[in-house]
């Protein structure tokens, strides 16, 4: 099965999981291996089911109904050995930023078409990280005090990409190559992850817990 990307889905909307199964079923290069309503249920399936083997990419709904926070869910999934692509119906920008800080590789709204979703899954699986205008918009207009500093060039490419331009057009406008433009977007994401890297002093842990519970609201 070389070259096939295994995918798991965590979403508590049954209709969406069914829909995703039929969508991805038509894609030979992807295989949906498991679905669950919560991260806990995915990682520890009820006895008759086989124990969970980490998928290459987990599609995680931003807002689950089990009181979990995106940050906590993403950290658990990363720890299990998967990469995470976050999806949601409405782009709640604070939560999107929190997801990237926690280590998610990308974010998409659920109204994107199938080719966009498939391309994002492939990018995430290949370790390239997925970019989307909705994620770029959340980063470009993040006005929280703890946002990372972006260079003017990074900011311009981010803004243009967030406005819906293709990476190619954004690169042309900035007078740089597509590779450089993509590099800028990767750097922005890396800065967020750096800023969100887990810290281990007691005070820092308390802060993370507090942030997570704030995120929950």
């Amino acid at each position: 099965m070389a070259g096939v990307i295994t995918v798991a889905l965590v979403d508590d909307d049954r209709m969406l999981t069914d829909g995703m199964r039929s969508w991805l079923g038509d894609q030979p290069q992807l295989r949906l291996v498991s679905t669950a309503a919560t991260v806990g249920r995915l990682l520890e399936p009820a006895p008759p089911a086989a124990p969970y083997a980490p998928a290459d990419v987990v599609l995680l709904d931003l807002r689950l109904r089990d009181d979990s926070t995106p940050g906590e869910n993403i950290r658990r999934l990363l720890h299990s050995g998967s990469r995470v692509l976050v999806i949601s119906t409405v782009p709640d920008r604070t939560q999107v930023i929190a997801s990237i800080r926690a280590g998610a590789d990308g974010y998409l709204t659920k109204d994107n078409d199938l080719p966009t979703l498939v391309a994002a899954i492939e990018d995430v699986a290949a370790g390239r990280g997925a970019h989307s205008p909705e994620l770029a918009f959340a980063c470009a207009h993040d006005d929280s005090p703890s946002r990372p500093r972006l260079s003017p060039r990074e900011r311009q490419v981010l803004l243009d990409y967030a406005s819906g331009m293709t990476l190619k057009s954004a690169a042309r406008r900035a007078g740089i190559t597509v590779h450089t433009a993509k590099d800028y977007l990767n750097r922005v994401k890396a800065k967020y992850r750096q800023a969100g890297r887990p810290t281990y002093t007691k005070i820092d842990l308390a802060r993370v817990v507090r942030e997570d519970s704030l995120d929950d609201g």
């Binding site: 406005s163 331009m165 406008r173």
Partner: peptide
């Protein structure tokens, strides 16, 4: 207006 062949319109 900003555009180029093959690159959409902004």
């Amino acid at each position: 207006l900003d555009t180029a062949p093959g690159e959409g319109v902004r």
